[in-house]
Design a binder for these strands. Structure first.
Length: 589
RNA sequence: GGGGUGGUAGUUAAGUCGGUUAUAACGCCGGCCUGUCAAGCCGGAGGCCGCGGGUUCAAGUCCCGUCCACCCCGCCA
């Protein structure tokens, strides 16, 4: 029999009368004893094949009757109009193929779940049989769309003069940042390890020193940290670096990319430039560094209004240098049970509790009505509260109050359904602090990474007030999720040394761990900067995926295992011996 | 590392106060059926109740431990 002449999903009324050959998977068959219908599926869709005794003949009817779901077949026949029996729910529903020949290419056991759009199999079942799951049209569509997106990205950067260069996966472990995935080396001396890259950061900087001017790579990165719905141990970055640039140059390139992707994938037009907000501003207005700007409901600073209002918890929080941060919900009343649930949200983010006030005809309701009358008045005014409005608030340290209320803001927006459908909130957050204090290690650590350039005007505070030094950094946030982050890098060796010292990395250690970067800075490093976009996350948001796992062909579970392959697995004793490794306490099964 | 939810036919779920032979739907197998497309009708098979221990005359059900999955906190430059 000749090979495929058309995809199943491509059949249309215009094909009527033509002889076609289809190849695909049997989705379902409906046997009427006399005639028999088979739905045949391939990547592009489903077509109905009909076996009729007068066309197919007895032996073929008998073989067609044996077909079962997920058998792989090649079917030849004539495309006929369905006449009265058109199925308006299928793109191919105007026609059917009257089978004249049938070749069974492969049989299938009964699949563990039906290969259909809507199934109620659990994720464990789906991931264990991922090939079958990926055969389902909605799952396949995600990866087909992902492929379209990466193609748009590659073309965009190629059109703008970026060079695609590959960087090593087997590289060296560096201090700072996430836990590395380690790969033992077999070579002498034993006891040496490669690390899989958390990102190609240093390599792309070396490419700038080398003079490539503009680099991009769609590259896998690895971080051995605990997982979340939006975090996989191996993930893909769109990695970008440019020479002779300021932050706005990098942002302009990424702005253009987002404009193109949103238009082509979501059919959404945006005007450029994408708005910028400083870190300080976003913390103050949204309480988080990844603001969801698709809706208002901004945070209120009620500190001055309720100061000295005679409410113990509030007064002591303010006296300790804290803040009172609130949200005003217009015309919303919460039940006791609902308030408890909301309080639980702020508590998981460190707040001690949630207070509330509701403006009623005769005055105020809620636990905070014990505040002095003038404080109540001032709070109502600061929140611009009208009758029927509820004010929720937290009194705590500034960051705890802001962060917990920022999380509550997003929680409430979802709960109250005030996030507009099919809207795209894109914003840059700039000027992050260069350093943050690590309580665990009791030292200053990089918020971004140690190669981030500080803003020069803040450098005089590097030792006196390290937390106030701002970085020349920028994150891009889409619908409340960080989808990328970058910075202008340090291209001056002296500056790099000063930053290492501020991080508590001595000259010797710096030389040993980062020597290959520092050395390159001695031989003519151009000013440079760049960004890395989280491709999985970006695709997930664009396609409305519920989990990152939906846009990754072979994802890992929350304990970083692969249900499909069984990785990670034990290895043979001689493999360990060759590497000079011993497992403490022996290998556990 | 901590908290929460879940695990019962191939799949998804129900299973009361601990009590007879563990239910249902879909799927599967057999039969009927010439216009279905969630096909229909009749019949049938199918169980390590995650795993291990304990309490009890008796455990899917109660207790302890453990494994796995998912969600969250910590963590993730």
């Amino acid at each position: 029999m000749p090979k495929r002449s058309k995809y199943c999903g491509e059949l249309r009324a215009s094909d009527t009368g033509n002889a076609v050959v289809l190849e695909g998977w049997v989705r379902k068959s409906r046997n009427f004893g006399g005639c028999l219908f088979v739905d045949l599926r391939d990547r592009e869709g489903v077509a109905q094949v009909v076996f009729k005794p007068e066309v197919a003949g007895e032996p073929l009817m008998k073989r067609a009757g044996e077909l079962r779901p997920e058998w792989v077949v090649r079917i030849g026949g004539e495309v006929l109009s369905r006449g009265e029996n058109v199925n308006a729910n299928m793109p191919t529903g105007e026609v059917e193929v009257a089978a004249a020949s049938l070749e069974v290419l492969s049989r299938s056991e009964v699949p563990p779940f039906p290969v259909e759009d809507e199934i109620n199999a659990t994720e464990v079942t789906r991931l264990t049989h991922r090939a079958l799951d990926l055969r389902r049209p909605p799952v396949q569509r995600m990866l087909l769309e992902r492929s379209r997106i990466t193609r748009i990205i590659r073309e965009y950067f190629a059109d703008n003069g970026f060079v695609d260069v590959e960087t090593p996966f087997l590289t060296r472990s560096t201090p700072e940042g996430a836990r590395d995935y380690l790969v033992p080396s077999r070579e002498d001396p034993k006891g040496r390890f490669y690390a899989l890259p958390q990102s190609p950061q240093i390599f792309k900087q070396l490419l700038m020193v080398a003079g490539f001017d503009r680099y991009m790579q769609i590259v896998r990165c690895f971080r051995d940290e605990d997982l979340r719905a939006d975090r996989q141990p191996e993930f893909t970055q769109v990695d970008v670096e440019m020479s002779f640039v300021e932050p706005e140059d990098v942002r302009a390139v990424i702005d253009g990319l987002f404009q193109l992707i949103l238009k082509k994938i979501a059919g959404h037009e945006i005007t450029l430039p994408v708005p910028c907000m400083t870190y300080e501003e976003t913390i103050s207005r949204y309480g988080v560094d990844n603001p969801d700007v698709r809706f208002g409901l901004e945070l209120l600073d009620l500190t001055d209004a309720v100061r000295g209002g005679g409410f113990g918890i509030i007064d002591s929080a303010i006296e300790a240098g804290g803040e009172v941060c609130g949200l005003r919900l217009e015309g919303v009343t919460f039940s006791r049970k609902q308030v408890d649930a909301l309080a639980e949200v702020v508590r998981t983010h460190g707040a001690k509790g949630l207070l509330w006030l509701r403006k009623e005809p005769g005055g105020w309701a809620g636990p905070a009505k014990k505040l002095a009358p003038e404080a109540l008045e001032a709070a109502g005014e600061a929140a611009a509260a009208a009758e029927g409005d509820t004010i929720l608030f937290v009194a705590d340290s500034r960051m705890t109050a802001r962060t917990s209320m920022g999380r509550l803001r997003v929680h409430l927006a979802r709960q109250l359904g005030i996030i507009p459908e099919n809207s795209w909130g894109l914003v840059w957050v700039t000027d992050f602090p260069l350093l943050e204090h690590s309580e665990e290690e009791d030292r200053w650590v990089s918020m971004h990474h140690p190669f981030t350039s500080p803003r020069p005007e803040d450098m005089d505070r590097l030792t006196s007030d390290p937390g106030s030094v701002r970085a020349r950094s920028y994150d891009i946030v889409l619908n409340g999720q960080e989808v990328g982050g970058g910075s202008i890098r340090i291209h001056d060796r002296e500056m790099q040394t000063r930053i290492f010292r501020a991080l508590g990395i001595g000259d010797e250690e710096a030389e040993e761990k980062f020597g290959f970067l520092l050395r390159s800075l001695r031989y003519g490093a151009p000013p440079h900067g760049g960004i890395a976009l989280g491709l999985d996350r970006l695709v997930g948001i664009l396609l409305g995926a519920e989990s990152l796992r939906d846009v990754i062909a072979f994802p890992k579970t929350t304990s970083a295992s692969c249900l499909l392959s069984g990785a990670p697995s034990t290895v043979a004793a001689d493999q360990l011996a060759e590497l000079g490794l011993m497992i403490e306490g022996g290998v556990k099964e």
